[in-house]
Design a binder for these strands. Structure first.
Lengths: 219, 219, 219, 219
DNA sequence: GATGAATGAGTGTTCATTCAT
DNA sequence: CATGAATGAACACTCATTCAT
């Protein structure tokens, strides 16, 4: 039993116990005592490696987000072709990776979202993650669509991915990953198809009235 | 101070205080004492009108869901024309009604979803609500699309609506209702447009392989 | 068992239990649980009547200070003659009243002083009390002595009273009240005797150099 | 980094860190972890040099008391004349030495007194210190006063010194050392002046009745 | 000699719930 | 109907101490 250099081991151990606890009883009832018991360590060790319970939860959230990012990146780096469609598909599939559609992850995400409405530190994490998805999508759409349409397509696809994930998570049945991916892909293809339909002169700018309204919120 | 017929008044008073408390501190920290204080009544009275805290929360959730249903129904009943598009638009707009995009409602929905993963009674409420949106959308799509495509369109639009709402709620900035509606409408129109593109003979059935897979999860 | 109007009864009950607990184990080890047990009530009741442990302790300190004030005032109101010496004697005797030289009071005072160095609310209480003794003494000396000498006499007698009390409390043996009073009285009489010895012209002002230095600290 | 002969260095390092911790947060909140951090060493080392926390605290108290003793002795050894008044003055000034009127020392003394009421080992230390002051004073007064009066003078001056120190420490403002010394000196001189006023035959014995009472408590 | 990982009992506090009034 | 007094278990967190390295 090593007595030095335990920090990374214990941290991971405790993060996984937290996911397990959230899966079993929810974030609200995931007490320090339960998490410690699941990790097979004493209560006090948590404040030794994380400042307090919030620290542990934030670390757990960061870990789940890191898993999501990796699920996407692994797929993108393995791509044979560098087309926007291939990248978008990788992003979609990464969002429905096995690491994201299991019980602990789904319950943790939902609890995270609810908590982020009241905890500034979690809210910041959440915004970074939200923006990452949008930004990745927008970047790929931008390669074939004018800015305004790329933004709208990215916003729509990000929302569709999150919505499909949300409804899948809440359904309580097994998550039908394939169906979700199929619906998201269809949306992606419908948006990509616009590159052939848009009139060249209107391509860079939205219709005036819409542009104004959208512009008010930075659209 | 009337001593009879107080029940509906007090119940509504307490439900609104609960929404206020959740808005202020989150569901986890919305204690009986805080809710009672916000409602201007004593602690003990809550168990008099609701069995316990869970009863109050379930009633609050039902109330928010009822508001959502009314937001949709009012719009549908006011329709001038009975086209599927008009109904779908009413459903979309109802989901972004003012009653659903304010702080208390958004925070309550998020907390509701997180809790529903662990509380069977809330999970039941949640499934009914989810199914209602899907069912309403599917019913309208079905008037112009074959069953398989109607289902997919309904699933997609339901997810898109929820996803747009979710991302709007989590953003922390003001909710850009118009943009959300615009994106959802575009999706609706793209789906409705299929009625002219589908080959007549394939209309009622999806390709065999997909049908099988989808059917396995009750598609 | 009355269920309303318990506040003053419970508060007094808890204050006395606090004194008892401090007497038994010291302020540092006087836990909420011990105090509640000594009072014969539940742990939770303390936060119902006092905001928290600090609230209870502050209330206890106020109570001990009030007792001291009353011990002095009762004696002063019972005086047959209105001479400065009679008042000063009453103040001295009041400070060695039975309510101040018992175990619980002595231990509470000592703990109070130590805590007041780090808790602003207790420090404020402490300063009020300290100033009251000085002020009462100074007021009486002032009737027969010029200002400067009255102030010095008051400062000296206040310190002597506190010092006699302190050394008595710390001795661990029984408190020799009579001896303490005798020593304080002698000091009082030596100071009062100055009224016949002071040269008339120097009476109102101290020697210049001393006045300057003393004045720098508000002397 | 030497590995031998560290004991006195480490002990002094830890004692000074303890004084610093007590100054910052009070004895009650001066945890081992804080003291170790202030000393720049690890938690575990404290039990290596002191048996436990009590050992460290007792050593710290002894150190402060030693400083007081040295503050007095240095002054007495530097005296030009061997008169009682010179010695008494040195004792008074030593008690208001810079080593005794700074924040760490004042807070430590107050905490020490409070703790000594409940910890026999500290109580013993405290009694030794108290007796030393009395004994030193009494010894000098005895050179010019009969026993009974010397004792009373010593008791009074000891109490006045402690009381002046106490009120200065508690005031929270800067400690007006000069004023305290002036008041104590005046008392000393008033007592010394008795050597010329006492009737020779009554010099060695107090009045009978008082002697009896005082004797009962070891007067 | 020195570290810091690990423990687990103990702390103040919160809270849903009950119930006499 | 309505109050608020009272409970006691549960909570996050602290901390002195131990001990393998």
């Amino acid at each position: 039993m090593p007595k030095v250099g335990m920090q990374p081991i214990r941290r991971q151990q405790l993060i996984e116990a937290t996911l397990q606890a959230v899966d079993q009883v929810g974030l609200g009832d995931a007490s320090i005592a339960l998490i410690a018991r699941l990790a097979g360590v004493s209560n006090g060790i948590i404040s030794h490696y994380f400042q307090d319970k919030n620290g542990l939860i934030a670390a757990t959230m960061s870990y789940v987000m890191k898993m999501l990012g990796e699920g996407v990146n692994v797929r993108r780096e393995a791509l044979q072709e560098d087309t926007p469609r291939a990248h978008l598909l990788a992003i979609i599939e990464g969002n429905f990776d096995a690491s994201q559609v299991n019980g602990p992850a789904m319950k943790t995400w939902l609890a995270f979202w609810a908590s982020s409405m009241h905890q500034p530190s979690l809210h910041r994490l959440q915004r970074i993650n939200d923006h990452r998805l949008y930004s990745n999508l927008c970047c790929q759409f931008r390669r074939v669509l004018p800015l305004y349409h790329a933004r709208k397509a990215a916003r729509g696809l990000a929302a569709l991915i999150d919505g499909l994930w949300l409804r899948g998570a809440l359904s309580g049945d097994g998550f039908d990953t394939e169906q979700a991916i199929r619906i998201a892909c269809e949306y992606m293809d419908l948006q990509l198809a616009k590159q052939h339909n848009l009139p060249p002169q209107a391509a860079e700018e939205p219709p005036a009235t819409l542009a104004l309204k959208a512009g008010m919120r930075g659209g």
